[in-house]
Write a protein that binds this DNA or RNA. Structure first.
Length: 791
DNA sequence: CTCTCCCT
């Protein structure tokens, strides 16, 4: 079958020739991703002698897509991967012969900070723009400026610089944020719509919206499986727990062993019934009336009446009439979970055909909405909800909340049933809920996330005035200023003019979030850089594996083991884990035994290599290598590492409530951290050390820094805690500190001879709320008539 | 004691 996009080749190519920006809309299955690069290639684009000699670039939001699309196009054009290449974070196949390059959008953003004009390229195709990912949005903004620059330079010297073309591809028609945004494109770009190769999907709404969508999904899947013709079922739920629960229910009801004999029996009974009915139908007046009392499935071929002791009673209907029979088995269902933290092997099982005589039934999260396409799906069951990460920009508190998805995303989910043939989508909510409670589109990522990384990246490209940046959807002013403030605390930008500093420039060269980049640039002391790199690599990757309930004790033991000598930091515990993993030979068995996700550990390993090479390349006098037999840090190094961590999280300090209320001194004695409240810098709420932290079972520290702050069902908890010494704060957190008057006790000491220097105790106050800290000793000197604290 | 999904 010819791809729908091929019918539009003329229109698309003409539009690209006549416009610098073109938008192409076409749902999954239209073939735009694989075909548009080929149209360009075949029309001579990227050919060294042509008018547009630069490469054809296609960006993807996901690594797998970049790699597999490059393979596909290379295969279709019969060209090697040195010509149709890909580049993702850890894998490049480009060569000097490369003509078409697939890459993740993050890769192109990084290239932009090296070469703002994108001189290598003649066309940039930005795919999946409808997903509104952070990187894609930023890319569209930057590229809109590059277009103008290239156009100007090309007018001056056409022989040297050619204009750039941009193609934005979207699966939905939500493109007005791009087309009608005059700060982005002064003249609205043309929009070309391509039909999709998609079969019709009938949508069935529930009459009423149930409280418990898992129970409702169970009922619906049972009905589909019992009554409807073959075809895979895909169920959308919100998270791992729900998925595992439904898996268990369905596996109990429909054991996956295929009782072949029973299946044949069912077929035999039905055939016999049909024959008999056919014979009866020949007698006039004996036709049965086909009432469709159960039309909610949209089928009435076979109806399940009741089940008793594992016996199933069916009413079988065909064009000749109706027939009732019982059979004593439950047809097997091949039930598979699918969510992203599942090991790769488990995820790959959904692509294999289910065992003979069983029906595939995949229970998935949002992964199956965009990134994973499961073959053979004919029925979709959609709970209509999705789990979303929320981020309170003012307080920095994160939470996970389950809410209705958008109409656009419900449409995507339904579409999954129409890839191989006509399908059905059962929505476990009423059409009234859909009409009234569903937003048209999901909120773009940029409106939901902290963006200090993006802002630093823009500053490094020379964009100082980020407020004027042509965002497809501008983030809130507060989000932007929060990002600039944090970059100020980290020393990455000048606090007055908000211009990038040399340190900031160095940080921008590192492919990690600014906090972690800060830790790297200050970490090259006392031979600590390899440790800092390992810590940053681990923090940048999701490390922990979901714990199994039965193994609670063992898990706890392994936590203690991982903590090693120092038990005052969850982050140093990560360092120990990385070290132990490498020492054990980086095996999957080690991960299994120690409650780690091997996928994450491999990612950490690759990231350590990347960061190590980068640090060595970026900084003179940095001499690091990846040592698989990395020894644990010494006591002195541990202290330094904690100070480095403090610097990275200097705006995430928390102090014990009882200590603050006691003027910064003394406080209550606690045996463990259970119920011990901490005060936060940016919120009036209190927070607690999570029971999963290594610090929970010890006397809680007076002060700590945390990686993340999470709002759970009952209270707000820290994630990734490091105990710190309040004495460090006046130095590491200068911008947050002020000092009160010298204390009378202990008595100030004056230097013997000159009397123009004295050592005194002062009470520092820290943070936006002026928390009193335990007194520290400082040296003061006389300046004119006043005493000032020496630097 | 429970974590949707991605990326330099």
């Amino acid at each position: 079958m010819k791809l729908p996009v091929c019918g539009e080749e003329q229109v698309i190519m003409e539009a690209i020739r006549n416009n610098t920006v073109v938008v192409i809309c076409g749902e999954t299955g239209s073939g735009k991703t694989t075909q548009v690069p080929q149209f360009l290639y075949e029309a001579g684009w990227s050919h060294p002698d042509s008018d547009n000699p630069g490469l054809i670039a296609i960006t993807q939001p996901r690594r797998v897509a970049a790699v597999s699309m490059a393979k596909r196009v290379g295969y279709e054009l019969n060209l090697p991967e040195s010509v149709v290449s890909h580049q993702i974070r850890y894998d490049v196949t480009t060569s000097e012969k490369t003509r078409i390059k697939f890459m993740t959008d993050g890769v192109l953003l990084r290239e932009l900070s090296q070469d703002l004009l994108l001189t290598k390229y003649s066309v940039i195709i930005i795919d999946e723009a409808h997903e509104r990912n952070l990187n894609t949005d930023i890319l569209i903004g930057v590229v809109s400026r590059v277009l103008k620059l290239r156009a100007e330079l090309s007018r001056e010297d056409r022989a040297k610089i050619k204009p750039l073309r941009v193609v934005i591809m979207s699966a939905t028609l939500r493109v007005s944020d791009f087309t009608e945004n005059s700060t982005l494109f002064t003249k609205p770009p043309p929009v070309i719509s391509v039909n999709a190769r998609q079969y019709p999907v009938s949508i069935h709404f529930n009459k009423r919206t149930p409280e418990d969508h898992v129970a409702e999904a169970f009922k619906k899947v049972s009905k589909i499986h019992d009554r409807l013709p073959e075809g895979g079922i895909l169920i959308f739920l919100t998270g791992q727990n729900e998925i595992q629960h439904l898996c268990k229910l369905l596996r109990e009801k429909y054991p996956s062993l295929p009782p072949k004999a029973a299946l044949e029996e069912r077929k035999r009974i039905r055939q016999a019934a049909e024959l008999e009915l056919k014979r009866d139908a020949a007698i006039p007046g004996e036709e049965s009336d086909s009432d469709d009392s159960d039309s909610d499935l949209g089928f009435d071929e076979e109806e399940l009446v009741s089940t008793k002791d594992g016996k199933w009673e069916y009413i079988y209907k065909c064009e000749y009439g109706k027939f009732t029979y019982t059979i004593s088995y439950a047809a097997p269902l091949h039930v598979l979970p699918l969510y992203s933290s599942l090991p790769t092997e488990a995820q790959l099982r959904v692509f294999q055909p289910p065992p003979e005589g069983t029906r595939l039934c995949v229970i998935a999260t949002n992964v199956a909405e965009t990134s994973v396409t499961i073959p053979g799906i004919r029925y979709v069951v959609d709970c209509g909800k999705a789990k979303e990460r929320r981020y309170d920009i003012k307080t920095g508190v994160q939470s996970f909340e389950v809410d209705w998805t958008s109409k656009a995303s419900a449409g995507q989910r339904a579409g999954r049933a129409g890839r191989t043939g006509p399908g059905h989508c059962y929505r476990l909510y009423s059409s009234a809920v859909f009409d009234h409670d569903f937003e048209q589109f999901s909120t773009p990522e940029i409106s939901r996330m902290p963006i200090e990384g993006v802002v630093l990246n823009m500053k490094s490209m020379g964009i100082d005035n980020v407020v004027n940046f042509p965002f497809p959807t501008p983030p809130e002013r507060q989000t932007l200023s929060k990002a600039e403030k944090l970059l100020g605390y980290l020393g990455a930008i000048d606090t007055d003019v908000k211009h990038i500093t040399p340190v900031g420039q160095a940080m921008a060269n590192l492919p990690v979030t600014p906090r972690f980049a800060k830790m790297l640039v200050i970490g090259n002391q006392q031979d600590c850089l390899p440790f800092v790199i390992a810590i940053v690599a681990a923090l940048s990757t999701e490390i922990a594996k979901a714990r199994r309930r039965l193994m609670r004790k063992k898990y706890f033991e392994s936590q203690i083991k991982h903590a090693g000598l120092d038990r005052s930091s969850d982050i140093l515990k990560l360092l120990n884990v990385v070290g132990a993993y490498e020492y054990a030979g980086a095996t999957a068995e080690f991960c299994e035994e120690n409650f780690l996700r091997s996928k994450a550990m491999e990612e950490i390993r690759k990231l350590r290599w990347q960061l190590t090479n980068l640090m060595a390349a970026l900084f003179e006098n940095v001499d690091v290598w990846v040592d698989p037999k990395m020894l644990p840090p010494t006591k002195r190094q541990i202290k330094f590492l904690k100070q480095v961590i403090t610097a990275g999280f200097i705006d995430s300090v928390a102090i014990r409530k009882d200590v603050i209320e006691n003027g910064g001194q003394g406080g209550t004695r606690f045996k463990n951290a259970r119920g011990v409240a901490y005060k936060l810098m940016w919120s009036e709420e209190e927070a607690f050390i999570h029971p999963g932290s290594i610090l929970y079972s010890q006397e809680p520290p007076i002060a700590l820094v945390y990686n993340e702050l999470f709002k759970g069902a009952t209270k707000t908890c820290f994630k990734g805690v490091t105990a710190i010494d309040t004495k460090w704060l006046p130095e590491i957190g200068k911008e947050f500190c002020s000092f009160g008057r010298p204390l009378d006790h202990p008595i100030p000491k004056y230097s013997e001879q000159t009397k123009d220097k004295k050592t005194v105790y002062v009470v520092p106050s820290f943070g936006p709320k002026g928390w009193p800290l335990p007194p520290i000793q400082v040296e003061m000197h006389r300046k004119g008539t006043r005493w000032v604290i020496s630097a």
